[in-house]
Design a protein around this nucleic acid. Structure first.
Lengths: 212, 212
DNA sequence: GTCTATAGGGCGATAGAC
DNA sequence: GTCTATCGCCCTATAGAC
């Protein structure tokens, strides 16, 4: 079985390369989320992905383009998650089961991939950057349109929804769960109110990434 | 009038130094808010303050200590603003005049100094950093306590208040007002709902800092 | 397609003059 | 107290071998 049915030499590397590309994007999402755009080195991304630093740069051109791809990928997942909740055919049961609640739960699920929402969040603070700022604004407005036009939220509902999303992102970025497990009573109140029924998710992401 | 009543040579430089210190902190707040902690160079701060780069480092020891001082100063102003609104003796008139509304307006006033809230916001995304993360969490919890214990907000009211604060910060960080003045209809809806009665403030800060 | 080696530039911090 | 000059590190990106 040494020379039998080897996948075509033309295709096999290409597929592995695309796997590597996805692997790098995933690693980059995590590192960018933790340290921000400027604070992230291409070497840190490379080490997290298990490849060499120049390979990361080769594959994406520049660090900025890598970050923009991370943002696009995060936005795609966010929109897909919202659209899945909107398209969910399960009938609503009880007053507590609304589309808003379902979307909120779907959003909180995304927090499991902490880097995803934090990378977006970091981009939201870089509005002054020509390329990143433009992409971030366009992405945020795209989310707004989906909430208004596809989920049918009113302007006020959308504002509430987005505000609490930003609040949750902030709690994750602050690693506020560390204070919660540390026993701080205010942190307890704060998190239990800000992240209803999703504290378990937050605490899980906190426990996972202790050695960061 | 060449040698008459010169301010004591021991005191005069010290006072000027403290003025310089405040000047540098103000400049640093602006630059940190715009580019974040890592994205800010001590040289950019120095140029914004009109002093030399080594002087900035000399005065604050390290860039990290400078940022921590910027954070403390921003937090102090934020808390002072809240406490002023809480202590305001003006009687409430009408159902629209509540402490929550007054605090919201007070917060929005702070947006005039854009760097102040954005520097804080940047710190909220650096929870993984040992020194900055710890300071950011402590600061956020201090704000929480003032809202609960001094303003008398309930857990839910505090959550709403903070969530909308994070939302406003995000709109400022995104420079979303640029899309507003650019004529984007969604940005118009979004901002008019997210920043009720305070759009003028946002647009003013947008117009000011065009050449950044 | 992926690596090692390294160039090139920028930044934080120090030394030392005034 | 404030500056000029500069060191030494780190980081992005390129060159080139395999």
């Amino acid at each position: 079985m040494s020379s039998v049915t080897i996948p075509t030499p033309d295709l096999a590397p290409r597929m592995r390369a695309e796997q590597r590309r996805e692997l790098i994007l995933e690693a980059a999402t995590s590192v960018f989320g933790e340290r921000g755009y400027v604070g992230t080195t291409t070497d840190a991304v490379a080490r997290a992905a298990g490849v060499s630093q120049p390979y990361v740069v080769r594959m994406f051109g520049t660090k900025e383009r890598l970050f923009l791809e991370v943002l696009q990928r995060a936005l795609d997942r966010l929109l897909a998650t919202f659209r899945a909740a909107i398209a969910d055919p399960t009938p609503f049961v009880g007053a507590d089961d609304t589309l808003g609640r379902r979307m909120g739960r779907a959003y909180a699920e995304l927090l499991l991939d902490r880097g995803l929402l934090l990378s977006l969040m970091h981009s939201f603070l870089l509005g002054a950057d020509p390329a990143i700022g433009a992409a971030a604004r366009a992405g945020f407005l795209q989310v707004y349109r989906v909430l208004r036009e596809e989920a049918g939220f009113s302007a006020t509902e959308t504002d509430q929804f987005l505000a609490h999303g930003m609040m949750m992102n902030t709690m994750v970025g602050l690693r506020m769960a560390d204070e919660y497990v540390g026993g701080d009573l205010c942190a307890k109140d704060l998190l239990e109110t800000a992240m209803p029924q999703k504290l378990d998710v937050l605490l899980r992401t906190s426990a996972e990434n202790k050695p960061a």
